[in-house]
């Protein structure tokens, strides 16, 4: 049954994590930045589920944790998109580089 070893899941999740981090730092469109964040969250979900299944199958903590992460990610995206819409109303753009009124 356990024909796929744990390390494969971890490689996928690590790859997803860094793709997300890369996207977050290089994209200037806010919606794309939010999508990158979702990628990172999903890599964390894979981690949790894989750890739960392979290392600690006696309880379902990791599984529940990933369910909660999905719910919170939806809430966070909802608020973030509301903020972005409001930003669009005042700035007429959703590029982070154009929202640069305050600088050091």
């Amino acid at each position: 049954m356990n024909s796929i070893p744990l390390i494969h899941f971890l490689i996928v999740s690590t790859a997803l994590f860094f793709i997300g981090v890369y996207g977050f730092f290089t994209r200037i469109n806010m919606i794309t930045m939010l999508m990158s964040i979702e990628l990172i969250l999903n890599s964390v979900n894979i981690n949790f589920v894989a750890f739960n299944k392979y290392l600690h199958p006696e309880s379902n903590d990791g599984l529940f944790f990933s369910l909660f992460i999905i719910a919170i990610a939806a809430a966070e995206a909802a608020v973030a998109i509301a903020i972005i819409i409001n930003l669009y109303r005042t700035h007429s753009t959703i590029d982070v580089e154009d929202a640069n009124e305050m600088k050091l």
Binding site: F17, M30, I37, A80, I83, L87, H91, A99, E101
Partner: peptide, 21 residues
Amino acid sequence: SGEAAMKLILSSAFSSCLMLM
């Protein structure tokens, strides 16, 4: 105000991602 909120939500979402990892 909009810019501040955008900066807060994006950077806090990113930091909480790292924390979850």
